[in-house]
């Protein structure tokens, strides 16, 4: 050991993996209050082992479990104008952005990637609720435009994971204009004859629900996800009565015909593989055709779909690459 490995490397590592560092080893389930050990929670895809509550998943964590062996390539997203309105409330918008970037280690509220899922080539986009409530501003608009363009170019299906409080107020009318803008992108994908699958996760509300999140060929939601246009609080204030239990939750929307399916996160990946392969006219996925990645046994390995369902969803590069955790930090 020399000073480089003792001093420099830990510093560099801490720069990249800040988000992965569990601040506390135990997480309290917001639904049932059970204390969950972080590793147990991660292995269970951030779903409470006691009550099945689906907690938030960052786009990177989601892609690590979605793509074969956790391997994916980021699709570049065009940089929008920064703070076009010079917006300021109690804080400057630029300061809010900086602190969100510092807290999450991400540039913005959406991540777009391409790769293979059960050996099915796809493009995926995921919204990051931890980044300013996942709010849709011009960057998210650019990300969806880029995702649709890339899917069209590669002739692949697009899977979009939505999670947002709505439009980003700090970009004013320009965030509102992302509603028609993303609609154009989605329509162009549709015209190219490619499937657009939306996975609605908790919460998906406001202008996001009222544009690209409700225009999918197939709508799948995670259990108990809040999906709505106007939030329950606003409605209670308007109609001055208590809303029924489960109102605007995934199961409720399923009952009211707004969703195709409500699927547990554990089964989601397999379901997405099945659905996209059928829509793309591909033969059924072969299960267990490849060994799981070698480093899965390592104690530091992140939860990964292969850990759940054995050999399914591995990749040739699995033994060459570091685990999904290191991959996500690239």
């Amino acid at each position: 050991m020399n000073w480089i490995s003792n001093y420099v490397r830990p510093k560099i590592n801490s720069l990249f993996s800040r988000r992965e560092m569990p601040e506390h080893l135990w997480t309290k389930c917001p639904e049932c209050g059970t204390m969950l050990f972080h590793r147990e929670l991660a292995t269970n895809l951030n779903v409470c082992t006691a009550c099945g509550h689906h907690m938030a998943l960052t786009p990177r964590a989601r892609f690590a479990t979605l793509f074969d062996g956790g391997v994916f390539t980021e699709v570049p997203v065009a940089e929008p104008l920064a703070d076009p309105l010079h917006f300021r409330d109690s804080k400057r918008y630029t300061d809010r952005m900086r602190s969100a970037q510092r807290d999450t280690g991400e540039k913005e509220a959406m991540l777009v990637a391409e790769g293979e899922m059960g050996r099915t080539p796809i493009v995926a986009a995921a919204q990051d609720f931890s980044f300013m409530g996942g709010s849709m501003g011009m960057y998210v608009g650019n990300a969806i435009v880029a995702a649709c363009a890339r899917a069209t170019e590669l002739r692949r299906p697009l899977i979009l994971f939505s999670a947002a409080g709505g439009a980003r107020m700090q970009e004013g009318i320009l965030s509102l204009m992302q509603m028609p803008r993303t609609t154009v992108a989605v329509e162009e994908l549709r015209e190219a004859g490619l499937p657009y699958i939306v996975v609605l996760t908790h919460p998906t509300t406001g202008g996001v629900t009222a544009s690209y999140a409700m225009l999918g060929d197939i709508h799948i939601a995670e259990p108990n996800a809040l999906i709505c246009f106007a939030g329950p609080r606003v409605i209670e204030q308007t109609i001055r009565e208590k809303l029924p239990e489960g109102f605007q939750r995934a199961e409720y929307l399923l009952d009211h015909g707004m969703l195709d399916r409500v699927t547990h996160r554990r089964e989601l990946r397999d379901e997405l593989i099945t659905v996209t392969r059928m829509l793309m006219g591909l033969p059924p996925a072969v299960k267990g055709d490849l060994p799981p990645p070698l480093d899965l046994a390592a104690p530091e390995a992140q939860p990964d779909a292969p850990a759940e369902d054995g050999a399914e969803g591995t990749t040739e590069t699995g033994d060459q690459r570091p685990g999904p955790k290191a991959d996500a930090a690239e």
Binding site: T183, A210, S211, A213, A230, I235, I239, M258
Partner: peptide
């Protein structure tokens, strides 16, 4: 758009999204 119980039940967001798409 009206923030009401029935409006949400009947798919306020979907209706708005489809109307925007129709305009386009």
């Amino acid at each position: 758009a009206y923030p009401g119980k029935g409006a949400e039940e009947r798919g306020q967001s979907e209706a708005i999204a489809r109307s925007t798409a129709k305009c386009l």
